[in-house]
Amino acid sequence: MQRVNMIMAESPGLITICLLGYLLSAECTVFLDHENANKILNRPKRYNSGKLEEFVQGNLERECMEEKCSFEEAREVFENTERTTEFWKQYVDGDQCESNPCLNGGSCKDDINSYECWCPFGFEGKNCELDVTCNIKNGRCEQFCKNSADNKVVCSCTEGYRLAENQKSCEPAVPFPCGRVSVSQTSKLTRAETVFPDVDYVNSTEAETILDNITQSTQSFNDFTRVVGGEDAKPGQFPWQVVLNGKVDAFCGGSIVNEKWIVTAAHCVETGVKITVVAGEHNIEETEHTEQKRNVIRIIPHHNYNAAINKYNHDIALLELDEPLVLNSYVTPICIADKEYTNIFLKFGSGYVSGWGRVFHKGRSALVLQYLRVPLVDRATCLRSTKFTIYNNMFCAGFHEGGRDSCQGDSGGPHVTEVEGTSFLTGIISWGEECAMKGKYGIYTKVSRYVNWIKEKTKLT
């Protein structure tokens, strides 16, 4: 034993070699072989497995989906700052455009905790909710729209109204504003409101030439003092309507412009014939205590009207009353817009006519005020429907199939267009061939041609 100890002390290297040989010859039971080890760690190889990531292109799944990435790591994937920024906006807080917040056709661009709407022409605001041009839906104005110097929408209202708090709607500024039905039992019968379409306001006024200088022999019209197929109006439903009495009662109609003036057809009036105007009328054979009678003290036909040349060209006249009318729910003026808007309103496509005229061709006159909704007829169809001249200051309205029309005794009465609950004068009943005849239409004086003249002559002093 002493000898062994001496050998170990003198030859430590020998001992180490012996131990190493023993270990190498022993069977290893701690580690699995290569094949079995792979069965336990069965993990798919990654895209760049075996390579240094710093030297390969980034992978979106590896960089940002398996674990949260930084902007720089995302930049490695896209290799483009702009594309990385677009991805980053949604990656950080989701897609803010998912709810489609942009209105009126706006395009949404996502941002971090926010979004941006790219608005089409005519709109602005956070969600493109603000109209900035009158060309689109009248700028959301209830009545009139004008573009300011910086191309912003400025709404306005006709006389007797003021802008509401929203700067879009119009509200009454006087007790009985024009064009409004205020009798409670008839307010439910107000005709369907007309909503502004998209309009090209630059070209809204037709490029028409008034044929002022045409000389033409007097034409022989049949029954051209021209509501057939209409309905009984309720008291106060058309408070701007008046009836004219002269040699015979209810020979023509008219509309209240203001307390002192009536507008009617020029062919209705004769110099030297006494005319009485009755406002607030409903049943011409009954006294309903809503009527107001006034005498006409002055007749002003349009300066281009000449019955000797043509009885229905420039067929418009103004009547001055001896005493002002007292405005109330049964006696209310009709609204008159400017030339541009009167023309736009007419193009809405349908209007209402009213009167006490004959209820059928050569038949009896109506006792109760009649009204009828009539569609506008395109000019080409209008011209083809008659052998008589249709001037540019006239328009056609009615039904091709016949059966409904204005008729004798309705002449001078109103053709009105309702705009968001307020009625505007767009025409004056003038003439036609018979009444409600198939293929024939009622012919009306186009008020847009005469609004400046009306307003100039009827100013209240």
Rank of each mutant, 00 (worst) to 15 (best):
R3N: 09
R3S: 08
V4G: 11
N5W: 08
A9E: 03
S11T: 06
G13L: 12
L14E: 00
L14D: 01
I17R: 00
S25T: 08
T29N: 10
T29K: 06
D33V: 08
D33A: 12
N36Y: 03
A37Q: 15
A37C: 14
A37H: 15
I40P: 14
N42M: 08
R43V: 13
P44L: 06
Y47A: 15
Y47H: 13
G50H: 12
E53M: 06
E54R: 13
G58W: 03
N59P: 03
L60P: 15
E67C: 06
E73S: 12
E76A: 06
E76K: 12
V77Y: 10
N80P: 15
N80G: 15
E82N: 15
R83M: 03
R83Q: 13
Q90W: 04
V92N: 03
G106L: 02
K109C: 06
Y115R: 15
C117I: 01
C117P: 02
C119T: 02
F121I: 04
F121E: 11
N127D: 05
N127I: 11
L130A: 06
T133D: 09
N135C: 13
N138M: 14
F144S: 00
F144E: 00
N151A: 06
C155T: 00
C155V: 00
T158W: 02
E165I: 08
K168G: 06
K168M: 12
E171H: 06
V174E: 09
P177G: 03
V183P: 12
Q185V: 07
S187Q: 10
F196R: 06
P197E: 04
D198S: 11
V199S: 08
N203Y: 08
N203W: 07
A207P: 07
T209Y: 08
I210A: 10
I210V: 10
T215E: 10
S217N: 05
T218V: 08
S220Y: 07
R226D: 05
V228G: 04
G229K: 10
G229L: 12
E231A: 04
Q237C: 04
Q237M: 07
W240G: 00
V243F: 09
G246C: 03
K247L: 07
D249N: 05
F251M: 06
S255H: 01
I256K: 00
N258E: 02
V263F: 01
A265E: 00
A265M: 02
A266V: 02
C268V: 01
G272N: 12
V277L: 03
V277S: 01
V277A: 09
V277R: 00
V278C: 05
N283G: 08
N283I: 05
E286K: 08
N295Y: 07
R298S: 10
H303N: 10
Y305S: 02
A307L: 08
N310Y: 04
I316G: 00
A317Y: 00
L318M: 03
L318K: 01
L318C: 02
L319T: 01
E320K: 03
Y330P: 01
Y330I: 03
V331H: 00
C335A: 00
C335K: 00
K339E: 15
K347E: 13
S354H: 04
V359R: 15
V359L: 11
L369M: 13
Q370S: 13
L376K: 12
L376M: 05
V377I: 10
D378G: 10
R379G: 15
A380K: 12
S385Y: 13
T386S: 15
T386I: 12
T386C: 14
N393R: 04
G398W: 03
G403L: 10
S406E: 14
S411I: 11
S411M: 15
G412Q: 09
G412E: 04
G412H: 08
P414H: 15
T417Y: 02
E418G: 07
V419S: 05
E420N: 12
L425C: 01
I428P: 00
W431V: 15
G432A: 14
E433H: 14
E434V: 14
C435A: 04
G439H: 08
G439F: 03
Y441N: 03
I443Y: 13
V451D: 02
N452R: 10
W453K: 00
I454D: 01
L460S: 06
